[in-house]
Design a protein around this nucleic acid. Structure first.
Lengths: 196, 196, 196, 196
DNA sequence: CAGTAATCGAGACGGTACGTCCCGTCTTTAT
DNA sequence: ATAAAGACGGGACGTACCGTCTCGATTACTG
């Protein structure tokens, strides 16, 4: 436990945890206006100082990762049909994307990650967690009998997430509802689902 | 057609970026050492000047795009089986990736593209062309009878490329041969191929 | 004499003298818009090419000198009184200065001259010639008996020109009529003139 | 008065240009080698960065003005005779001029001033202050009775400075001791001094 | 009149300084 | 002792201009 036994002299860090109001403010400030993001600007907007930011996050990119983690998590609903559940997830993504200037953050993060292995260690678990809703949906499909008992869930999850991510962030592809539905249908069928 | 309208008076630009002329190939100089790429360094290595570079490419990123376009194109072989053909393509990618420092260039390009629409106009056609080998392979599979007559080729091409790109460049996923084989199998089966 | 003995084949320089129409055009183009003067701009305005300009003048500054030499020469009038004649000269200067953007050219020339001795050789004779009108006026004053027979004309000329130039171009001083009249009066009196 | 309004928080600027602190004196670095002066070189020599320099001085020329202001001020001595005092001042100028590469700085400054009014506001007061020694000498001459009670001191000061400056920096004139002595004699006589 | 060779306009080229921007660290004063 | 403020060293960026060069097109001389 990192409990301070004795406060000692001097001003203590303002609620020294990531949940502290100050740090929350900073990450929030970073979340808006990702393009042309500058640490000085973030500091100014959060009424913090650059020292404070660098005391908490070793690089600008780490701060962006923190900001990225504030993205709302997708909620897996249960409509009784895999395809519809996946489409619902995609709709949630699209809604998140539209609001806020978070559009370009994923490419930026991925680029930073590519040449800073240290960043990968922080970023990858967060990304991995984003896969969970799809996991839930696919597992439910198995229980429901829409997918075979022995379906490789991880394979399916990654395929769906990879394609979705590509279409949303990276490639100049069609990310509209109908196009994505087609993709999901092929994946489900390839996984052995009946009726697609 | 890129027909020269009229030569007119004036010294024409060296064709250095195409065949190389009296100075070194600039794009080639940019190709090596992508991380920490500096225009001054590129200029020095190519025995060119920054002016010359900026006269040809409006931004550093445009130059990188040109450098990216020197990547060897994948050759679609014909082994008589779709899956093997696709796996061969993937093997070529892996080989290209290993040699050269081109590793981090894709994420960088994608990030730059995300916030410079002008760059997208130049980059997207080049990316699109990279899809061709897969197109060829899928079409051959249809002719061969491995895929149904009415297969949506574009759908398949994009799915395969999206997933491959994700695994190779963007996501912390398994891009090994066996893992990719699994993915391809699911896609092919999803498209209606028999025997996978 | 630099007379071409035999013309030989080939196109001769277009009226290869400073009086040639083409060169006149160039110097004229340089005369307008001295601040932010660029050889490319001069070339464009004169419909000449940089090569042509550099064939005639070894540096930008030499061209400016040529342009400077187009300044109208001051005409020494004879009113019967030295002081009035000098004031008339000053009025002419002021008029020249007001029209045209030639304002900053003298400082520029002087600065260039300071670090390019070669330029001094070209510029100094031209400047020296600008002293002539004052010489004429002072000599007339001697003949007229307004100045002593043994007046050091050169001393007077240089003093008058130095002060005038300082006030007009270099120092933040008063170059108005009355102020200059005071100056001239002191110089004349110092030279031994009676009645000032 | 340049009163500090309020220190407030934040690291204050180093006073390097005034007393020198943890890095070398920037203006001093600029003072040496005026011709071919490069901000990068100044920065390197002063162990400072371009940012630091541009934070203090808006333009290269402003820095040069600051460097110019380090020129030693002339000391008005009192020999009992105006002419000798003025000649002593001139001797000091000549000595300053000889040592150091400051030779070309005045023309440069004047040229820059001519097309940047903002620079004039900074430069002019400094130049004006350089006139003081002559003022002192002329006033003493009046008290001493060498010049009339009602002498226009400012007129004399400016005439002397204008001519001196012209001969030293701008015009291709004789700035030797005897020549200058002649000039001073004429000015003094013109101002009503007796015995010249 | 036809051939030919120097000059011309246009502008690309290598080089280099400029002034701006941002990063991540450091140094103050205020709390 | 920490925080806010922001100065600092470092270094890349993209712009501007210089003086040289390389083209194709345009001439005036020569044969």
């Amino acid at each position: 436990m990192t409990v301070r036994k004795k406060p000692g002299p001097g001003r203590p860090r303002s609620v020294a945890s990531e949940e502290g109001h100050h740090h929350r403010d900073i990450a929030a400030a970073a979340r808006t206006r990702l393009s042309g993001l500058t640490l000085s600007r973030v500091a100014a907007r959060a009424r913090a100082s650059k020292s404070t930011i660098y005391r908490r996050w070793p690089t600008k990119e780490h701060l962006i990762v923190a900001a990225f983690n504030r993205w709302p998590v997708l909620i897996p609903h249960d409509s009784g049909d895999v395809l519809e559940d996946l489409m619902d997830l995609h709709a949630q993504s699209m809604r998140n994307l539209r609001r806020g200037e978070l559009k370009g953050v994923m490419p930026k993060l991925v680029a930073a990650r590519a040449e800073a292995p240290a960043l990968a260690e922080v970023l990858d678990p967060l990304i991995e967690r984003r896969y969970d809703p799809v996991r839930v949906i696919l597992r439910r499909a198995i229980e429901r009998g829409q997918l075979p008992r022995n379906t490789d869930v991880e394979l399916g999850v990654h395929m769906i997430m990879d394609i979705t991510a590509s279409r949303l962030y990276f490639a100049p592809s069609d990310a509209s509802g109908p196009a994505i539905r087609q993709v999901f249908r092929v994946v489900l069928k390839g996984l052995g689902a009946r009726g697609y």
